[in-house]
């Protein structure tokens, strides 16, 4: 019951760590060109109109920020907030409103292949997500009020993991519908519970 196992971890932090390469990794099975060392970006961009969507969102967010700083300096009188502090704040917010949508448009990409969905999102923080189609559980289209004005949709592909949802924002509505149909028909063949 209480016998110790040789080389058990938890006894010391550094004792079990080797500094070499991937020595613990067995060679990959059935891969002709060796393991993948770099991933390319997904192939497809989202709709260029997405930039406008994000600009409006950014303007709204910036408006909230300006409003809060006005409240802080005006009626609330917190820590002597001077009016000239607005200058750097406004410069930063302006940069955000102008720069973020463009930056984001460069980043946001997606791709659906025969076996997987691959997305790339974000701007300051970027995240790529890959999910095999065999693990896809649901595919949803969502259209927010601003998106509708621009004829855009968001496609969300979920897996059984709470952290694994793949989102493609700013897609042309018709294209989004086609993607949903495609992915759904592919995943319908799967009978396992995808967990």
């Amino acid at each position: 019951m209480t016998e110790n196992v040789a080389g058990q971890p938890g006894s010391g932090a550094g004792a079990e760590v080797n500094d070499g390469g991937l020595t613990a990794v067995p060679p990959p099975a059935g891969s002709g060109d060796g393991p993948v060392t770099r991933l390319r970006e997904p192939t497809e961009r989202v709709s260029p109109r997405a930039r406008w969507l994000w600009t409006i969102e950014a303007v709204l967010e910036a408006g909230v920020a300006v409003g809060i700083s006005l409240l802080v300096s005006g009626p609330w009188q917190w820590f002597g907030f001077h009016l000239w502090w607005f200058v750097p704040i406004c410069v930063v917010l302006l940069g955000f409103v102008i720069g973020m949508p463009r930056w984001r448009y460069r980043v946001h990409r997606w791709e659906v292949t025969d076996t997987a969905v691959y997305t790339q999102r974000g701007w300051f923080d970027i995240e790529r997500r890959i999910a095999p189609l065999s693990r896809v559980q649901t595919v949803d289209v969502h259209r927010g009020p601003i998106s509708q004005v621009f004829g855009l949709s968001t496609v969300t592909v979920t897996t059984a993991s709470s952290a694994g949802a793949l989102k493609i924002e700013g897609l042309d509505a018709a294209l989004a519908a086609r993607i949903v149909d495609d992915v759904t028909s592919r995943t319908e063949r799967e009978t396992s519970d995808a967990t």
Binding site: V25, P35, V36, E44, E111, T113, A116, A174
Partner: peptide, 30 residues
């Protein structure tokens, strides 16, 4: 990261390998 993911789950990442042309698109944009 790429090697680890590819080794742990062989086959999935191969199609997104850098320098490889894109596989068949399911829903190509118009």
């Amino acid at each position: 990261a790429a090697t680890l993911a590819d080794t742990a789950l062989p086959g999935l990442l191969d199609q997104f390998r850098a320098g490889q042309t894109a596989g068949k698109q399911v829903a190509a944009p118009p």
